[in-house]
């Protein structure tokens, strides 16, 4: 039994039944398939994270986001007063995570690619774009850059899914995707 020493002293030399060998082989091959699937997705898939990131001082990042927000501001959200910023298509879009908001509101064009910059001014936050369901961890001190191409128009929510203190559940933001050329 499993609670007694093995019957055959040299248990590592014992014969293994065919049923077990087949299952081990199937499981091993399945592991290789799953491993290859991840690699293949980097070649054929369209949803991969870039590994581009830079160390950045939080104050420097905040200053950069504020400057660009002032440059490309197209309006203000009525209820919250958060600026609406429309970065140039194909260009850089900056988003700042801080307690407790995603700032500013970004207005993007459908089908255009943007280099989205993400970083935090204070604690760790979780970028969670809903209902698309893209989830990315945001760290203070690291600026992450990924190229994102919105493929549907509409209003999308950003919620925070990394605990960031007592106001965590009030931390929201928005990305607005408009048709090409639409004001």
């Amino acid at each position: 039994m499993a609670i007694h020493p093995p019957e055959q002293r040299l248990w590592w030399k014992e014969h293994v039944e065919r049923t077990e060998i087949i299952w081990i082989a199937v499981a091993f091959v399945w592991g290789l398939i799953m491993f290859s699937t991840m690699i293949a997705w980097h070649v054929y898939g369209r949803q991969n994270l870039a590994n581009e990131a830079y160390r950045v001082r939080p104050e420097a990042y905040v200053a950069k986001v504020e400057t660009l927000a002032a440059t490309y501001k197209v309006g203000e959200d009525g209820a919250s007063g958060v600026p609406i910023v429309r970065p140039p298509p194909g260009g850089d879009a900056y988003l700042l995570a801080r307690i407790w908001q995603w700032w500013p509101i970004l207005e993007l064009e459908k089908g255009q690619s943007y280099r989205l910059h993400l970083s935090s001014a204070d604690w760790q936050h979780g970028f969670s774009l809903q209902p698309v369901n893209i989830n990315i961890q945001v760290h203070p001190g690291y600026e992450m850059i990924l190229t994102m191409t919105p493929s549907e128009a509409g209003e999308f929510g950003i919620v925070c899914n990394e605990f960031c203190g007592i106001g965590h559940h009030t931390m929201t933001g928005r990305i607005r995707v408009v048709e090409k050329g639409e004001k």
């Binding site: 369209r46 949803q47 870039a50 190229t147």
Partner: peptide, 8 residues
């Protein structure tokens, strides 16, 4: 996953 906005 394949239905998500393209990312790279």
């Amino acid at each position: 996953l394949a239905q998500l906005w393209p990312l790279r």
